[in-house]
Structures are given as structure tokens and as C-alpha cells.
């Protein structure tokens, strides 16, 4: 139990500080740690938890407290949330003090736009890792593809798309 909590703290502290370009860029690393290294859950369970978190209100990555819950109950929720949201918040607080000094420096813009290709690669990797586990059948792959097209081409609210996906799933179409 305690060793699980220490692992959660270590993993999410690292993820917190590496989450450049927002939360979705660290999903593959979270997946690697939680599924491949610690075997706390299967890839399918991880995708289900990610999906639950997407259906909930609030910031991205509410999958973090869910992973904590799954591993160690309420203690896991607190440890994983504190480790995920604490360190990056601390960095924000410190940066706020020096921000006025560096916000107009050319290097700031160079670094920020220079990291965009990394974010693009990481979010694409996230999509691949989650899609691989979430689309085991042809029908579910079609659902994922159709949702991607609708959300890219139209301004339909994501919640409606998630609801539609859940309904198609409920019909059991193409699932065993």
C-alpha cells in the first residue's frame, strides 16, 4: 500500500513537470507506467478510465485521481492529485514572479513555438495508444473514426459525441 502510494507520488510528480503542451501529451507515459510497468490495470481498463474522465466536467486529465482511486482508494486520490497538480503549480507560482522579465524576450517565443512539434507528436501518440486499446472491434474502430471526423469537421459539443458513442456501445453492435 505505502509502496504503491510512493510509486503514485513519483510517477505523477514526474508527469506534472513534463506536461508541456497540456495534459494530453503525458497520456502515453502514464499508460506506460500504469499498465506496462506497474501492472495496476490492463490497457482496456486504462482506456475505460480515460473515457470516464472525458465524460466528466472539469479540466483535462481527471483520469489522474481515477488512477489513484483504482490503485489505493482515497489515499491514492489525494497522493496522485497532489503529485500531479502540485509541482506544476509551484513552477507556475515561481514563473509568475519572473514572467514580466522574460515575457517579451525573443527566446521565450522561440522556445514556446519550438515545442509545438513535440506536443503534436505526443498528442498523436496519446491518440494512438488510447485508440489501440479502445477499438478492438471493427464497429468500435468505426465509432472512434466517426467521432474523430465529427469533432474535427463540426462544432458539435464533445459531450454529445461521447453520449452517442456510449449509446452505440450499449446496443452491443459488433461486440461479443
Amino acid at each position: 500500500m505505502t509502496s504503491n502510494l510512493i510509486d503514485l507520488a513519483t510517477i505523477f510528480t514526474q508527469l506534472s513537470l513534463l506536461a508541456f503542451g497540456g495534459g494530453n501529451s503525458i497520456l502515453p507515459e502514464m499508460h506506460r507506467e500504469v499498465v506496462d510497468i506497474h501492472h495496476w490495470m490492463t490497457a482496456e481498463e486504462f482506456s475505460a478510465l480515460f473515457a470516464l474522465a472525458q465524460a466528466a466536467p472539469g479540466p483535462n486529465l481527471m483520469v489522474v485521481p481515477l488512477v489513484g482511486w483504482h490503485v489505493a482508494g482515497w489515499a491514492g486520490v489525494f497522493v496522485s492529485s497532489a503529485a500531479k497538480f502540485g509541482p506544476s503549480s509551484l513552477v507556475t507560482g515561481i514563473a509568475l514572479h519572473v514572467w514580466t522579465r522574460f515575457k517579451d524576450r525573443p527566446w521565450r517565443r522561440i522556445v514556446q513555438s519550438g515545442l509545438v512539434p513535440m506536443t503534436a507528436g505526443l498528442v498523436t501518440a496519446s491518440a494512438a495508444v488510447i485508440a489501440e486499446a479502445s477499438a478492438p472491434s471493427l464497429v468500435l474502430a468505426a465509432v472512434a473514426g466517426a467521432c474523430a471526423v465529427v469533432l474535427t469537421k463540426t462544432s458539435v459539443h464533445p459531450l454529445f459525441v461521447l453520449g452517442a458513442g456510449a449509446l452505440i456501445g450499449l446496443s452491443g453492435l459488433g461486440q461479443m
Binding site: 480515460f50 473515457a51 488510447i130 467521432c147
Partner: peptide, 29 residues
């Protein structure tokens, strides 16, 4: 089984959401 099926559909849609995010970040590049 109903809950499993429902969550399978939800997970597929959530994967679609991520794919769409990836497309939106990659397209400008």
C-alpha cells in the same frame, strides 16, 4: 454486459476525441 458495452462505446468515442485533438494540433504544421 450492458455496462461493459456502454463503456466500450464511450471509450471508442473518447479515443475519437483524442484523434480529433491530434488532427487539430498537427494540421497547422
Amino acid at each position: 454486459p450492458y455496462v461493459t458495452h456502454m463503456f466500450a462505446g464511450l471509450a471508442a468515442a473518447a479515443a475519437g476525441l483524442l484523434i480529433s485533438m491530434a488532427i487539430k494540433i498537427v494540421m497547422p504544421l
